[in-house]
Nucleic acid binder design. Structure first.
Lengths: 218, 218
DNA sequence: CGTTCCCTTGAGTCTCGTCAAGGACCGTGG
DNA sequence: CCACGGTCCTTGACGAGACTCAAGGGAACG
């Protein structure tokens, strides 16, 4: 039987995706000295959401979970990581996730690793953060919460304009939020009847009560 | 009213996250000549899942959707992208998502952009691909499908060992898959009673019918 | 003016969540 | 060795939220 707690053999580690990449390219991550291995007992915290991010982490043994929290305690784990895998990517100097040891674990820490050309990397990490935040939305939120979050996200991405056109169909919205078009339509109607939004046309939306939508997002 | 279809002003573009990064750092992405802008009419495909990936894309105007498909047609949109945003990241030379224009759109294409030190970038993209695949699981799959996918994923990450220990609690699994612990427990029991798995202890799992689990994943 | 596509609304169903009770496992201490 | 308490897991009954199926409305287009 294979146990996560066991330290993997060097060979096993080389088989693993990230370990392979890193081991084969000793000139980059490995250069980010000082290297350091830290041990974490089960359920102890490695870093918290909001912490300043100044390192990358590679699992030596054990298992690590990355997760986000809603204010009411609902939790969405974005990933489990086993030996060899790298985590701790961030886009703006702070962590957007919590990291904890699932069982006793050791983590190798690469401090200040970002000496590389960061343009692409930053864009990729931005994309990653977006995906992880979206995981929380579709994993742990109700239909109303998802739609409200969607509206607020659009508002913020579109120059804080309260009145905008939806480029996408109800089907697109449903597939984005993990719902059906009927549910999307019903929630739009509910928000309209409550006065949160106004629908000038099916895709022509005006936000009337932004705070109401924000508070629904939880 | 703000319409996605309108071409953004240069100033507006500079405000946007990725555009800002790229415009300010003309020495990197911009060097990846030849640069090229392509137009796509509404609902036309930009690239398909499985296509060889050899470029990055930046939205000039319009909206783009990135999505994955299940064999039965269920679809999960992972992201919408508006003017200035960059997409098309991949981890192993091929696209893991479909990209389509939501409405008429233009996309600037940066071919063969990856001259940078790729170690970190590859790790970040691997993480991104994982998050996007997980989006499909929790956005569009039933409880049984999620658990089956989870078991198969563990099997494949743990050296194809059919007998392994779960490092994580039922609560962790539930939070990872967007379910409750009761539902996780019920599905485990169902799989056990159908002979797909054997539970030597609550966290000591043996896969008996791997093909059955795979076929459940859809 | 008719057709088509997209969206809305309603009725019924079902999956999954909630609440509650009980069982298994484990370390501690007698 | 066994009793005890705590934690984690399982199982059942019930209910709510979202899905399915179906019908109809409305805007765009020829």
């Amino acid at each position: 039987m294979l146990a996560y707690r066991a330290q993997p053999t060097p060979d096993a580690m080389l088989d693993r995706t990230f370990a392979g990449v890193i081991a084969k390219d000793a000139g980059s991550l490995a250069d980010s000295q000082p290297r350091q291995v830290e041990f974490y007992s089960a359920n102890s915290q490695i870093y918290a959401q909001g912490d300043r991010a100044a390192a990358l982490y590679q699992v030596e043994f054990g298992v690590v979970r990355l997760f986000r929290l809603l204010t009411d305690g609902r939790r969405q784990i974005c990933a489990f990581h086993v030996a060899g895998e790298v985590f701790g990517f961030e886009a703006d100097g702070q962590h957007h996730l919590f990291a904890e040891a699932v069982c006793d674990a050791a983590v190798r820490i690469y401090r200040k690793p970002v000496r590389e050309d960061t343009t692409l990397l930053m864009a990729a990490m931005k994309e990653l953060v977006r995906a992880q935040e979206h995981l929380l939305v579709i994993g742990r939120q109700t239909a109303s919460e998802r739609i409200a979050a969607f509206m607020v996200d659009l508002y913020e991405r579109l120059d804080h304009e309260r009145h905008f056109e939806l480029a996408m169909s109800r089907t697109d919205i449903a597939d984005y939020l993990g719902l059906t078009i009927e549910t999307v339509s019903r929630v739009f109607s509910k928000f309209r009847s409550k006065g949160y939004i106004k629908l000038h046309g099916t895709r022509d939306v005006e936000i009337l009560q932004l705070d109401a939508l924000r508070s629904i997002c939880a």
